[in-house]
């Protein structure tokens, strides 16, 4: 019998494979190591990220359901809640107790009840509705607030880039 973290990840993988949520694909990069996953997220419809397919990497800790995984986009992203290196900053991925800013209530944060699916769904809704209060990328947050057109233009460029379509200048 494997460890409990591994069994839970296998169960989640099975669940995600059998009933994939719309617009989300996720699974281990290599089935010999279930603690490193790759996910593909499609940009939510009706937003500036519509149509894009964004690859991301999920790294799970050894004590997985007790501690949250880390998520990082492996493509270029420009979003108020995504650091410039692609790390995602949403409250569901923060372990309760170590809130650096002190603005998140513990009710929003990680608990073993959460799952990969819920994380990815939260990320999709984060793409649709950025939270410019907690800016992981201050430039993006500022642009989102003050110059939406420019933001949409950059988002469009990123969407095209993820699809391999380059705009001829």
């Amino acid at each position: 019998m494997a460890g409990s973290a591994l069994r839970r990840l296998m169960a989640e993988y099975k669940q995600l494979t059998l009933n994939p949520p719309e617009g989300i694909i996720a699974g281990p990069i290599n089935e010999e190591n279930f603690f490193e996953w790759e996910a593909l997220i499609t940009g939510p419809e009706g937003t500036c990220f519509e149509g894009g397919v964004f690859p991301a990497k999920l790294i799970f800790p050894c004590d997985y359901p007790l501690s949250p995984p880390k998520m990082q986009f492996t493509c270029e992203m420009f979003h108020p809640n995504i650091y410039s290196d692609g790390r995602v900053c949403i409250s569901i991925l923060h372990a309760p107790g170590d809130d650096p800013m002190g603005y998140e209530s513990s009710a929003e944060r990680w608990s073993p009840v959460q799952s990969v699916e819920k994380i990815l769904l939260s990320v999709v809704s984060m793409l649709a509705e950025p939270n410019d209060e907690s800016g992981a990328n201050v430039d993006a947050a500022k642009m989102w607030r003050e110059n939406r057109e420019e933001f949409n233009k950059i988002a469009d460029r990123i969407v095209r880039k993820t699809l391999g379509i380059y705009i001829r200048e």
Partner: peptide
């Protein structure tokens, strides 16, 4: 040895 916990094979 820590990796043992992570791999099913």
């Amino acid at each position: 040895v820590d990796y043992m916990e992570r791999s099913p094979v």
